[in-house]
Computed example of a mutant assay.
Amino acid sequence: MKKLLGLALLMLLLISATGTTSVENELHPSIEGTWELTSRYNYDGENVTDTLTPVKGYSQIKMFYNGKVMWTRYTPNKEVEWFGYGSYAATDNTLVEKLEYMSASMRKIANEDMQWSMELQLDNNTFTQISLDEDGGRIASENYHRID
């Protein structure tokens, strides 16, 4: 009887710990995972002025894991390659990416230190990275949904 009671208490403890983990993830979502671009927004400094959705066949994927970021873009009927790899740091509202290497087409438009600091809006299944001008005004965003 004592063994049965002990087993029941152990099962109850394991079930309650599992429930707590789910609540913790909902309260503090993680950017770690694989994400696919769903749309882009253009801003007038504060408000969205235009929404752009990918054309058929276009795909942009970002992966975040263990402080590393990797992204790739496939554009049908184009010979230009777009990809990059580096490190990232995320807080509740900021995403900083510092690329170590990238495609030649990306290098042509990259800033000198290959680092980007962006506003971050994150929940469990979506995230948005918003590019800001030197005064903190919003320029454009990339909007992603979690695929893994």
Rank of each mutant, 00 (worst) to 15 (best):
L5W: 10
I109M: 12
E24D: 07
E24A: 09
G136M: 04
V55A: 11
G136D: 08
D44F: 07
S141G: 06
D92H: 07
T128Y: 01
N125Q: 02
A140G: 03
L4S: 09
D123L: 06
T38Q: 14
Y88E: 03
L13D: 02
S59A: 12
W71A: 06
E32I: 01
L120H: 01
N42R: 12
N143K: 04
L9C: 11
N25L: 07
N25S: 07
E119V: 05
D92F: 04
K78L: 10
E24C: 06
L120K: 00
Y85P: 01
S87A: 09
L52H: 05
W35H: 06
Q115T: 15
E134M: 04
W116E: 11
N124C: 05
V80F: 04
E134S: 14
S105T: 09
A89R: 14
V55Y: 08
S39D: 09
A110K: 02
L7F: 07
G33Q: 10
K98A: 02
P29N: 04
F64E: 03
N124H: 02
A90M: 03
G45A: 13
W35Y: 08
M70Q: 10
F64S: 04
E100M: 10
L99M: 15
G6Q: 13
G57S: 06
D113W: 00
N47V: 01
R73I: 07
D92R: 09
A17G: 08
E24I: 14
H145W: 05
T18H: 10
K2V: 09
W71L: 13
R73V: 09
S39G: 04
Y58N: 05
T21Q: 06
T94F: 01
N124K: 08
M70P: 00
G67K: 09
M1K: 09
T51Y: 06
S22T: 11
S59T: 13
L4H: 06
I147G: 13
Y85K: 12
T75P: 01
Q115Y: 00
N66P: 02
W116A: 13
E119A: 13
S16N: 11
G137N: 15
T20P: 00
G19W: 03
W35S: 07
Y74D: 11
A110G: 12
Y65S: 15
L4Y: 14
N47C: 03
K108M: 11
S22R: 11
S59L: 12
D123T: 12
D148E: 14
I139C: 05
W116D: 13
K62P: 00
G137Y: 04
L120N: 01
I109V: 15
M63F: 03
K56A: 08
E46M: 08
